[in-house]
Amino acid sequence: MKQEDIPVVLVNPHHVRKSKELDDNSPTKNDTKDARVIGKLVLDGRYTEPKLPEGVYAELRILMNQSDRLNKDLTRSKGRIHNWLDRYFPEHTRVFKNWEGKASLITLSCFPLPQDVVNAGEEHIAKEWKKEVQRSVGLKRAQLLVRTAKKSIGITAGVNAARIELAELLEHYAMLSRQIDELMKQVEEELTLVPGAQAMLTTPCVGVKTVAGLYAEIGDLTGYAHPQQIIRHAGLSLKENSSGQHKGETTIIKRGRSRLRAILYKTVLILVPKNAKFRALHQYLTTRRDNPLKKKQSLIALCGKLVRILFKLGQKQQDYDASKVLGPYRET
């Protein structure tokens, strides 16, 4: 349609639901009525012009969508492995705090069950570890593993099927991990083609996933005149529910791209404890004399601050300058 110079507009489904009763005062819903309501909303100018991603921004959106799917699958895969350990070798995590470490994965692959560990013996287990891991594990850890396996309370029935089950789970886990690594390499390559992306990456605690996810959701920065447009796009604008003398709680509207909102919020959760300027700003917002914010309200406000910082860095293609984050008023 765009190639034929036909204008494309989008009517918010929420507006259709809210306005469908204005003409007939009836909650009836059918295709004819919906078409009439949508047509009237278009005539009234109550529509938006969608910005469909093109070029590298379309590539990033597809890649980040795939990344989300793979990470969800990986989380489920990890949960299934945890479930297997709880059933057959619950003491495994006493020996290996992180079951995803190399030595732990070697153990699960070669000696999955407690009886396999006992039959193999300390020296053989340590020898298998040394093929892949040179430090942090050795004979003492192998001895601890054998002692723990001897006292295991794991299920002892159906062990042959249990070995097959774990082997399939580990294979699926390894495949997903490899696919995610390959995908992120492709994302990094695409980011090098985006103007301003490298400047955004100079922000402490802001990584490839954050910047790539931001561009995947909003597209080209040149399509925005002000960072507040991106804040509204993420559903972070404030709403108030007040009437007369009653003043309701002010919250965010949550209308927009939920994935963009999640990216910003998760990034702020990392920035506040690890970035000195954001930590100071969070402290100021929650302890100021006038209108102090609750902790979560402060985090939401910092999401807007992060948008403004990244927007300026990306637009002007300038590196992050910590001295400009707080401003002279809050510095004092």
Rank of each mutant, 00 (worst) to 15 (best):
V159Y: 05
G121E: 01
I253T: 15
L214D: 00
I309V: 07
Q283K: 15
L264C: 10
G304P: 01
G207F: 02
T251V: 12
I230C: 02
K247V: 15
Q297T: 04
V268C: 03
A35M: 13
I263D: 00
Q66V: 07
H82Q: 13
L166M: 08
I106G: 04
R259N: 06
L166C: 03
Y215V: 00
Q317P: 01
L63C: 06
K294L: 08
N241P: 04
N160Y: 13
L302I: 04
R261I: 02
G79C: 08
S109D: 10
K151N: 14
L60I: 07
L63A: 12
I231P: 03
Y47T: 13
H14D: 14
R76T: 02
G223T: 10
N160W: 13
P227D: 02
V95L: 03
M64V: 04
L281K: 02
D34R: 08
Q283T: 15
G138M: 13
E171S: 15
K127R: 13
L193W: 01
D321A: 14
K127W: 12
H233F: 14
P195N: 11
H82F: 12
R288N: 10
L74N: 05
G55W: 07
Q115A: 13
I164G: 06
E4V: 07
W99I: 08
E168T: 11
D290M: 14
K2E: 15
A157H: 11
L271T: 01
P292K: 01
H124P: 02
D31E: 09
